[in-house]
Design a protein around this nucleic acid. Structure first.
Lengths: 368, 368
DNA sequence: CGCTTACCGGTAAGCGCTTACAGGCATCGG
DNA sequence: CCGATGCCTGTAAGCGCTTACCGGTAAGCG
């Protein structure tokens, strides 16, 4: 395959050196600001670089100094059948990635992106290949088993998002417990709802497990009844949320006064299914989400949820990885605060200052 | 800086070779399926690779065979002040990127992502650095001047999105002319509107120029009056669209019966500003967008617009780049078809089968 | 005026991998 | 039974860059 870039007369540091009339070492030194080149030398080199519009080869550089300045990011891309509006789901991931990128750029790193389909066979192989091209990896939720992560982790530094910390990898997540607590308290104390249900996310998601556990604990603490069981298992998708409601209703079960959902997507489906059956939100049943994805405010009614600082989640993940790449150790479990966002799906009145739909607002500075 | 990954006992092909009791050449051959290694040799190598969980270094590989299997993607990230809901704007770019990635993965390539802020100083330098790490570059709209692109293009293959083709670079765009034509005809012929206005995008955008020109030509052809002038210059943002309407109104100008917007974001702002002044859409003034971003259907009223095949735009951009990387030439100007999406902002009645809000629909297969 | 000291710049050795080339061994034919 | 013919496998060169090391020149000092 060498014919690939050979075709274009690849220019190298040698070309620059000979044009500038100096040695390749000098060129390298000027380009990297090492040593103390004489002003004249520096100028000759710079001129040659300009004239040839030379760009040093990243691969050679990486090979030589053992640093690629690249971080790999791996995530799942959606499944096959989607709810309309579910396109937005990738927004969640994309916003986090944007945050990673912001952090990365501060250190001259770039992001090497690789998504994995839900039924791709060779996930581990693909991730390994990515690892070979990067200095470290950031894995979104549920990409690899714990052992998979462990194995990978002694090849390259690893940071997981919404996973679990391990001896070898760092995890970054938001404060699920506080978010659920705020939600439960708002529903039970402020609204006085006595019965609650929780539509879970995927069973293998640490975030989901934490939220689920926090839900049970908080509800008990607040003295509310909770409705649980396998019928309440969702999978983070809108379709999953809709299915839960539909089958609950078909089984003749009475719904609790308020339903908490594992994430906003699920809430979207729950609200839809409720509407299908003529059940009013929030008059008959209140519904809440988790994440505060951008569509949340466009739903009818606007969704009460918990905002995760998504950009910052990404930025912190990069920072953690970066220090790990530089051999610095750091806390293996990074937890970011969340914020309750009260809209109308919980039963609160419309907030007159925040028009849903197309309001003109300066954006709250989430990060930086 | 060599201490970076040196810290982790970097394992190399030599380690694998000695553990397997063969030469590094054999290891390489097995790993790449070159030559005809004996079954026994292959097995010994594979076992050693497994046991050590060895992953070949991408940089060394790239240096050796002149192919990094990485494409760089560069785009602008939004400015500072945004409309609420404008977050979605990056969805447009992200969907295209997703398309690029799908195409890339088919050939074992990964995406190296780099966004550029609106007032970053050293854009050219950053892009050049990226070029050094990739086999080719895909540039989103308005990243670099024509000469900038030309200079870059004799370093690495370049594909631009929504730009202009040049002797050195390939461009991929959608069929703006047809989209505008469909819109104008729908408004003039189907609805009978006789006066039209066009809120433009940024003046330096080829897409915008094409749309603007097509608008004038089609309107003239259809016998409609058009309202133009500097007051109609927007900039692709919602704020820009709102400003156009507001200043038109403040200047006491009468609005045309229908307003076409350069993109959906602009339409969002136009609809907002109109609502502010108590002007009804579509009863008083019809409004249309361009792009069909996911929020378009959530607006009030749902936005009539032109759908760009965003995923496919990305996929095609990659394919073009890929063949260019392999020295194959190809058409320098790739144009993809668009589709008129009629909703309610043009004055059409609600479509009962397509509920806005949270309808449950299988998604129309845009691409694969 | 000659020697030390500093400062630059050049030479060359790798970084981990692919692959052209050549050598070894076994098999097959004469 | 010996030479020819392949089929594998190993050796080594080189991809483009960084940097340790060393030699040369000029400046500083006695």
């Amino acid at each position: 395959m060498p014919e690939a870039m050979r075709a274009k007369g690849t220019l190298t540091i040698y070309d620059v050196a000979s044009r500038a009339g100096v040695s390749i070492a000098s060129v390298s030194r000027v380009l990297n600001g090492q040593g103390t080149p004489r002003a004249e030398t520096r100028e000759k080199v710079m001129r040659a670089v300009q004239e040839l519009s030379f760009v040093p080869d990243g691969a050679a550089r990486a090979l030589s100094n053992g640093l690629k300045e690249v971080v790999g990011v791996v995530f799942r891309r959606g499944g096959e059948q989607l709810f309309e509006g579910e396109d937005e789901s990738f927004l969640f991931i994309d916003v986090i990635n944007r945050g990673i990128e912001v952090g990365a750029q501060r250190h001259g790193f770039d992001l090497l992106i690789s998504s994995v389909g839900f039924n791709d066979d060779n996930v581990a192989a693909r991730i390994a290949a990515l690892a070979g091209k990067a200095d470290g990896l950031i894995l979104h939720d549920r990409m690899l088993s714990a052992v998979g992560i462990a194995r990978l982790a002694d090849m390259v530094p690893i940071v997981t998002l919404a996973g679990s910390p391990s001896s070898a990898s760092i995890n970054v997540r938001c404060d699920n417990e506080s978010g659920i607590r705020a939600l439960v308290q708002h529903l039970v104390i402020d609204h006085g709802y006595r019965s609650l249900g929780y539509v879970s996310g995927r069973a293998d998601s640490p975030d989901n497990r934490t939220r689920s556990r926090a839900f049970a604990a908080e509800a008990a603490g607040a003295g509310a009844e909770i409705d649980t069981g396998p019928a309440w298992h969702g999978n983070y998708s809108a379709a999953g949320g809709a299915t839960v409601v539909t089958s609950l209703l078909d089984a003749g079960r009475k719904l609790p006064r308020a339903i908490l959902c594992a994430n906003d997507q699920t809430a979207l489906g729950v609200i839809y299914a409720l509407a299908q059956r003529g059940i009013k939100v929030p008059q008959d049943v209140a519904v809440t989400g988790f994440d505060d994805v951008p569509v949340a405010r466009h739903l009818h009614p606007p969704l009460t949820t918990v905002r995760q600082p998504m950009q910052e989640l990404g930025a912190r993940a990069f920072e953690a990885l970066y220090s790990r790449i530089n051999a610095a150790a750091g806390k293996p479990d990074i937890v970011l605060p969340v914020q309750l966002v009260v809209r109308e799906s919980c039963g609160c009145p419309p907030n007159p200052t925040a028009l849903s739909g197309t309001a003109l607002l300066a954006r709250d500075g989430q990060l930086r």
